[in-house]
Design a protein around this nucleic acid. Sequence first.
DNA 1: GTCTATAAAGTGATAGAC
DNA 2: GTCTATCACTTTATAGAC
Lengths: 207, 207
Amino acid sequence: MPASQAVLPTKERILGAAEELFARHGFEGASLRQLTAAAGVNLAAVNYHFGSKDRLIEEVFRRRLDQLNGRRMAALQEVSGQPDTTIEGVLAAFIVPALELSHDGSGSLFMRVLARAFAEHDDTLRRFLSENYGHVMRQFTAEFARLLPHLSKEELYWRVDLVTGALTHAMSGFGMIQRKSDVPEQQHREQTAQHLIRFAAAGLKSP
Amino acid sequence: MPASQAVLPTKERILGAAEELFARHGFEGASLRQLTAAAGVNLAAVNYHFGSKDRLIEEVFRRRLDQLNGRRMAALQEVSGQPDTTIEGVLAAFIVPALELSHDGSGSLFMRVLARAFAEHDDTLRRFLSENYGHVMRQFTAEFARLLPHLSKEELYWRVDLVTGALTHAMSGFGMIQRKSDVPEQQHREQTAQHLIRFAAAGLKSP
DNA sequence: GTCTATAAAGTGATAGAC
DNA sequence: GTCTATCACTTTATAGAC
């Protein structure tokens, strides 16, 4: 049996192909036929393993967001609530886990899937994301509120929304600002994080 | 003949319905059948008037972007190249025409269509937008470069990209931050412009 | 210009053999 | 758990009557 080799199980192969094709062609644009062909599995396997295309879409998000948001919350926990907490520290807790995912090889396309989810104003998808991961944004917003007590609620929501938009856009367009071959991977990631953090911090702190 | 009434010609009706359905369901998600039904025209009318779905998509962009980017360029012309030009003035030239469109009643959904075009990394669509409207972003970027001479080319591109992402996101999500009924339309628009300009200016100017 | 009718291909989902 | 075959539609696009 070749099952002991580095061949992923069917379910993982489908999730991987789905992530790539959803990123490139959208949720409606990528058909189950393209997707199962790319994964090298049978067409019927999607319905067997996931029940429907919609539930496959949810699993694509769940697989990445459980880990991504877990890391964000852990990082936030470490820097928040202290007397010396900085805006920059909180932003890093939000951004760095996403950049790590973006450079993961696998997973590098997930931020583009997430950017599509933002552009789709699909109610079902938004409810799924809000119910499962809404607490993350609420926690970060609460910490920003604590660090920026002079801002009105309205002003704060505006700025957090603008930061979210800027970061999602930037991270989904990742790879557009190419890493030069003489810059090592990790240094490039740190420079990117610095660009994003500096910009977002200035926007949040603006008078 | 009722044709002299306020009934729009077929071509305009199709463009209007297409804009709304592309905003709500995406380019692949909205079918020509839904679209022609919403416009109250025959299915075959799309191919008669536009040739194909792809060319209809291009016309949806052209109809709004010719005017929107024309106004942006005119506004930029007025404020740029002066010794007293400000970052805020240049940002207003970019933002205010888009907000006017967003509150136009008709056209209020176009920014969502534009946000989708960003999320789609479709090469054909990107080339169309770049060839026809790329000069606008280049002109604005050049003016930012003049006003922020201490920034490296790389740093400048990063910040302009982040501003673009933030603004597109914010304007496509428009209406989420609701205008309260006791605030008049124009005042609400001016307040929104101020939020966006303040945030973007701070990000661009950050040390 | 607008209509019906239809071609030709693609869609998600499922039943049932293995 | 994986396969083939197929159902029941929907898709874009077009030919040809009016």
